[in-house]
């Protein structure tokens, strides 16, 4: 699972731009031609410093989102209602951690070690999808995450899978295939509550009301303020604008929510038949930035759990190290 809305510029961006000026113009032209022709860029290829930096940030934050995203669902494994739901949830959580591994490897091909990425996550320097800073209060929250957050993630990932960097595209191909199961099992669990007892319906409606704003935040700030770089679009690092992806999500999923007799907590949410685009109330973007800064309901808990796992796993990682294995350490080749 993953959302593009947390891909933010760091303060040192201006400095990096200077660095970009030193890229060999001839090589840069050949590189851009290659992307324009629909070719993929591979790890050993020449690439502009800014392309490498942006990709590392994008893929790294995607990897963190997979791993942190497994936490709110993981805590529900023991409380999942029934054997079938428990099996599906275990499989889904294992997939998400597996996606994290695939993505860390893709990022490593660009030259940043996994250890450095984990350190940046734990220190708060590197972000993950904002949506995972909210708690899963009831089982209905887990079904909303499994259905709607995964659906939103798929919109984003299917777009990114057409990007220009080969190792990222290959990882996403496999991820999208597995996400289709996540979405289906989430939809199934969601429908079961929506068509269940009055108590189940009320629990689901509550969860939907709680999650609607984080879901609207998911794709990031509106295009008019996010100012996505044209360069990133040209280099096929960013494949679709935040508003386009949000619209695509609303178009596909609002009808699937409403057909079950559920409502969404936004009186303005409606499709404008003339423009073909969805209209909605602006979610609270100040809150969004506040949560990204670390002040959401679960930011601290998520990082503390991750830190706990790192600290308590250290002894076994060290015990397993064998002499000789590390004589030749290398990054993944593809």
């Amino acid at each position: 699972m993953y959302g593009g809305g947390y891909i933010f510029e760091e303060p040192n961006r201006v400095q990096q731009r200077e660095e970009q000026l030193h890229d060999d113009p001839e090589k840069l032209a050949a590189f851009e031609m290659r992307i324009a022709n629909g070719e993929k860029i591979e790890p050993g290829d020449w690439m502009p410093a800014e392309y490498r930096r942006q990709l590392i940030r994008l893929i790294e934050q995607h990897a963190h989102s997979e791993v942190i995203g497994a936490l709110p669902e993981g805590t529900w494994i023991t409380r999942a209602p029934g054997f079938k739901r428990k099996l599906a949830l275990i499989a889904k959580v294992q997939d998400e951690i597996g996606h994290g591994q695939l993505l860390y490897n893709a990022a490593e091909t660009l030259g940043k070690s996994r250890e450095a990425m984990i350190n940046d996550l734990l220190s708060g320097k590197s972000k993950y999808s904002n949506v995972f800073n909210y708690p899963a209060e009831t089982w209905a929250d887990v079904t909303v995450i499994g259905f709607l957050i995964d659906a939103a993630a798929i919109v984003n990932q299917v777009a990114n899978a057409k990007g220009s960097y080969g190792p990222y595209c290959r990882a996403l191909e496999r991820i999208c295939y597995e996400e289709s199961f996540h979405l289906k099992q989430g939809h199934d669990a969601f429908i079961e509550l929506a068509t269940g007892t009055p108590g189940q319906k009320a629990m689901l409606q509550d969860a939907l009301n709680r999650w609607w704003q984080p879901i609207m935040h998911f794709f990031g700030p509106p295009d008019k303020v996010s100012g996505h770089s044209e360069k990133l679009m040209q280099w096929k690092v960013k494949m679709a604008s935040n508003d386009d992806m949000r619209n695509q999500f609303l178009e596909a999923y609002v009808p699937k929510i409403r057909e079950l007799g559920l409502t969404l907590p936004d009186p303005l949410l409606n499709k404008n038949e003339e423009t073909g685009r969805w209209e909605y109330s602006d979610p609270d973007w100040d809150l969004f930035f506040e949560v990204i800064k670390g002040n959401g309901p679960c930011n601290k808990e998520r990082l503390d759990v991750r830190k706990w796992a790192e600290e308590h796993g250290r002894w076994i990682r060290k015990a397993l190290m064998k002499e000789g294995t590390f004589e030749k350490k290398a990054m993944p080749v593809a």
Partner: peptide, 20 residues
Amino acid sequence: LNKTDDPCKVEEGENWNVFE
């Protein structure tokens, strides 16, 4: 969790080697 606020740092190489 987090009884101390000590920062946690993973040492380079602690995540082992890479295999294709």
